[in-house]
Simulated assay, not measured.
Amino acid sequence: MQAEPIRVLVTGAAGQIAYSLLFSIAKGDVFGQDQPIILLLLDITPMLPVLEGVVMELQDCALPLLKEIIPTDKEEVAFKDLDAAILVGSMPRKEGMERKDLLKANVAIFKSQGAALDKYAKKTVKVLVVGNPANTNCLVAAKSAPSIPKENFSCLTRLDHNRARSQVAMRCGIPATQVKNVIIWGNHSSTQYPDVHHCKVNMSGSELTCFDAIKDDDWLKGDFITTVQQRGAAVIKARKLSSAMSAAKAICDHMRDICCKSLLGYCHWTWKIVDSLAINDFSKSKMDATAAELVEERDTAVTFLGV
């Protein structure tokens, strides 16, 4: 007997990240191969003709798990009875735009979407904020949805995590699956800190620390960090478009590992904060720098929220 469909929202659904993402969701890569899905696709009114083309392509894929597709520009339709929400759409930074203007525009978007979650979605909804500045937008959405548990909200740094694992793996000449316990601290921006001080690498059947496996502390404390921090900009420079494919893959990874195990009832699975993690002075200085940026963004956003 087939399970009841879950209702999954993707915002910015006519954009390039969503275009890379929707097929994976609809074919079962995220919520499971036996979980039917109703896809709700939200975008702004001028993008509805493009969104209709996306709907046609999804229909033409003839995916057995995809039970219904609902394209809309109305929040009251998009957020109704949601089980999961992936908030991809946001205001991009335009030429000449000040950072505070970008924050102001996105506060308005995510305040509205948070309120819509609060009013229309299930209280168990799992929310992933992708649109940048992701950390601050996530805070705004969570503050605007007071009836939904704060632990149901998260923002996407899985792309940075995947990038960091891949860099270590390529340096060691092994698959990324043999690299674990990489940590991304702080803002999803160029101040983020990819930390490998707790990272373990499996090489030839032996588990080594990342520093012992690579044997190049200068690289790990220098070029490795800047490469991960600036990877998004490097992709844009190379392909003249943002990193949609890898972002979509990271969204799938995040939703499957962080949100969906609890959403789909895997033994009351939940995430938790790791206590008593040793942090050295080098890491602390990097964490302090990105924390300062996050606090500044938060304080600016709160003034626009009016709280």
Rank of each mutant, 00 (worst) to 15 (best):
I174T: 02
A213H: 08
Q229N: 05
H188E: 08
E207V: 13
D216K: 09
R256P: 02
K221H: 14
I236E: 10
D223V: 03
L208P: 01
A248W: 10
V196R: 03
A244F: 13
M255S: 05
H254W: 12
Q192E: 05
K180Y: 05
V228P: 03
T227P: 03
A164W: 05
H198K: 11
D195Y: 01
A213M: 09
S154I: 02
D160M: 14
A244K: 08
M203H: 02
K221I: 04
G205Q: 10
V168L: 12
F224K: 10
G186A: 07
A234S: 13
K249N: 09
P194V: 10
G205N: 10
M170H: 12
F224Q: 11
M203Q: 12
S154Q: 12
N187G: 01
T177F: 01
V196T: 13
W185G: 00
K221V: 03
F153R: 04
I183D: 04
D257R: 07
R165C: 14
H188T: 09
W185Q: 05
S189C: 12
D217A: 14
N202E: 13
C210V: 06
A248L: 02
T227L: 12
S204E: 15
R171C: 08
G222C: 12
C199H: 01
T209G: 15
D212G: 00
D257P: 01
D195K: 03
A233Q: 13
Y193L: 07
T209K: 08
R165K: 14
F153G: 02
M170G: 04
